[in-house]
Structures are given as structure tokens and as C-alpha cells.
């Protein structure tokens, strides 16, 4: 079996990587109705990744075995303006295909991503995911992350 490589995403990875993004957004949908996935999610996922590859402030890495993409991490470097440390690397997407889970790939991708973000100037790392995603909460807690900010939501459509 071919080795798994963790590396920067390339143009030819986009189509398959988009599938992982769609899977992840659909997983988020399970946690809260305010994460209801839009109808043209596939098209948007492709655009999202294409823009990420082209952005200087964004990290997009994949775990691949040959041509097959097994995992994806996207993070953005952000200026916190008022607070120190000033620069944070925010992980917006981390998704591993079910078949590739439980093999330290999530951890390997996270460490790879953190290293890259630090090189770009990040002094702290945050991760965003739905509040109800206990699996993600456990994953990050286990690696020394703690809750930093609460985002409370209230739907106002049609009211």
C-alpha cells in the first residue's frame, strides 16, 4: 500500500478535496439546523478551496495516498487587533475520511498545520466547529486547547 503524505494542496487536488469539504459541512448539519447546507454546496466548496489556495493568509493542506485525498485541513491567519498575542491561526476545517480515522492522521495534520501557521506568524491557534460537536471538542481538548469564545446564535428569519 502506498504511503500517506501530508502536504500543501495543489490545483489537481481541488475536486477531490471539495468532496471532503462537502462531507464536513454535511456533518456540521447534523449538529444544528443553523448549519443547514445549501443546495449548491459542491460548487461552493470548489470555489472556497480555489480561493484558499490563492490566498496568502490561508493554509490548505491535504493528506493523500497516491491520488486519493484522505484528509484536509484549512486554516486562516487573522489579526486579533486588540489582543495579545496578536496573530492567530484559526482552523476552519479539519476533516478525515472515516476509513482513514484512528490512525493519528488528524493529529499529524494538525501538527503540520500548526507548524505552517507559526511560520506565517501565528502566535496562537484556535479551532472553529459547531458547539455540539463533542468529537471535535474531545479532539482539541486532548491536545491542550481550551474554550476561548462563545458564539451564541438566534434565528431571526421570518420573525
Amino acid at each position: 500500500m502506498q504511503r500517506i503524505t501530508i502536504r500543501d494542496a495543489r490545483g489537481e487536488d481541488l475536486r477531490e478535496s471539495a468532496r471532503l469539504v462537502v462531507r464536513m459541512k454535511r456533518l456540521n448539519e447534523e449538529f444544528d439546523p443553523l448549519y443547514k447546507v445549501v443546495g449548491d454546496v459542491e460548487k461552493r466548496a470548489l470555489k472556497y478551496l480555489r480561493e484558499s489556495i490563492g490566498s496568502k493568509n490561508t493554509v490548505l493542506i491535504v493528506a493523500s495516498r497516491g491520488k486519493r485525498i484522505l484528509g484536509l485541513l484549512r486554516a486562516v491567519l487573522e489579526d486579533r487587533v486588540f489582543y495579545e498575542p496578536l496573530m492567530t491561526g484559526t482552523i476552519t476545517d479539519l476533516y478525515i475520511l472515516p476509513e482513514a480515522r484512528r490512525k493519528t492522521m488528524g493529529n499529524d495534520m494538525l501538527q503540520h498545520g500548526i507548524k505552517k501557521l507559526k511560520r506565517m506568524g501565528a502566535e496562537m491557534i484556535t479551532a472553529e466547529f459547531p458547539a455540539q460537536n463533542e468529537i471535535a471538542v474531545r479532539f482539541y481538548h486532548k491536545r491542550g486547547f481550551r474554550a476561548l469564545v462563545n458564539i451564541l446564535a438566534k434565528e431571526e428569519m421570518g420573525q
Binding site: R26, L27, E30, L97, P98, E99, I135
Partner: peptide, 13 residues
Amino acid sequence: NAERDDMDQLLLR
């Protein structure tokens, strides 16, 4: 199969 689209739903449900 492990590649099915509803795997994450199964994981949770």
C-alpha cells in the same frame, strides 16, 4: 462501505 456519504451521520446516529 467505509466510503459511503452517510458515514458521518452513522457515526453520530
